[in-house]
């Protein structure tokens, strides 16, 4: 449903973040972008909704063609493209519900959106919160929720857009391993149920193996692997992560009974 065609992104400081990357994201699949930090995962994801403009190359969607064709086309594309961020990107002093309602903004004109959104939108937002198990926290301030809960609000915000596509940029990197697995499982289940195409960047090989229908491996701005999780063997991981000395396989998710101190250590690692 979405194709990346020889996309190169060069930033103003002459760093080439993405080098002639081509990829395609079939409808309903859960695709993982795997690679170390700085490999170009975030840049690739942001090309898929126009937050980053390619220096050269095109991003095409099945419905609308070139997503950067016009500002109206871009807005239509973004309307049905939910994005989930590593740092959640919530507004701390607003309630969970208010944050989720941001996902409904693009369905209304700027001046209409200055007034409270219609009841139908509020119900949609509440439903989205319910699906991530946070309906009872709807009126809590976002900054009073735990990290895992905040990320679930982030997922609900994306769901409120009734998306065809979800882009998730390291959605579980700032969570402890046990919570990370739960949040990713939730995201995976919802995308399956709703037939949403998902593009998720991760740096944990284990998580990628568990959930991905297909994996793109990135290293130094290039796509160096394209295939199912089963084909991801040790030599290929060395290619992606640079050298054998790099811990290419992350430890399995920690069990909840482990001490907070160890959890904290794992988070930093």
């Amino acid at each position: 449903m979405l194709d990346l065609d020889k996309v190169t992104v060069r930033y103003a400081n002459r760093v080439t973040a993405l080098d002639e990357a081509s990829a395609s994201f079939p409808k309903g699949q859960f695709i993982v972008l795997l690679g170390p930090s700085g490999a170009g995962k975030s840049t690739l994801l942001r090309c898929l909704n126009g937050l980053v403009r390619p220096t050269s190359g095109k991003v095409r969607s099945e419905e609308g063609g070139n997503i950067l064709g016009s500002s109206a086309a871009l807005r239509r594309h973004r309307q049905r493209t939910g994005m989930i961020f590593q740092q959640h990107h919530l507004i701390g002093r607003l309630t969970a519900l208010q944050n989720v309602l941001m996902g409904r903004l693009s369905f209304h004109g700027t001046f209409r959106s200055l007034l409270p959104l219609p009841r139908a939108d509020r119900l949609l937002a509440l439903e989205a919160l319910d699906r991530v198990g946070l309906a009872d926290r709807a009126l809590h301030r976002a900054d009073q929720l735990s990290g895992g809960q905040q990320q679930r609000v982030g997922i609900a915000r994306a769901l409120a857009q009734q998306p065809h596509l979800i882009l998730a940029d390291e959605p579980v990197a700032s969570l402890d391993p046990a919570t990370a697995d739960k949040v990713l499982a939730l995201l995976h289940r919802i995308c399956r149920e709703d037939g949403i195409t998902a593009v998720v960047s991760l740096h944990q090989v284990e998580l990628a193996r568990r959930y991905a229908d297909g994996i793109y491996g990135l290293a130094g701005g290039r796509i160096v692997f394209d295939g199912p999780a089963a084909e991801l063997d040790a030599p290929m991981l060395d290619t992606i992560y640079g050298s054998a000395s790099t811990p290419s396989v992350q430890p399995a998710p920690l069990q909840p009974e482990q001490t907070p101190a160890r959890l904290k250590m794992a988070k930093i690692a």
Partner: peptide
């Protein structure tokens, strides 16, 4: 700037 990026990604207009 993070929530601003989130709003842009969700298709909000610059004024929104």
């Amino acid at each position: 700037p993070k929530p601003l990026e989130a709003a842009r990604a969700a298709g909000a207009t610059p004024l929104q």
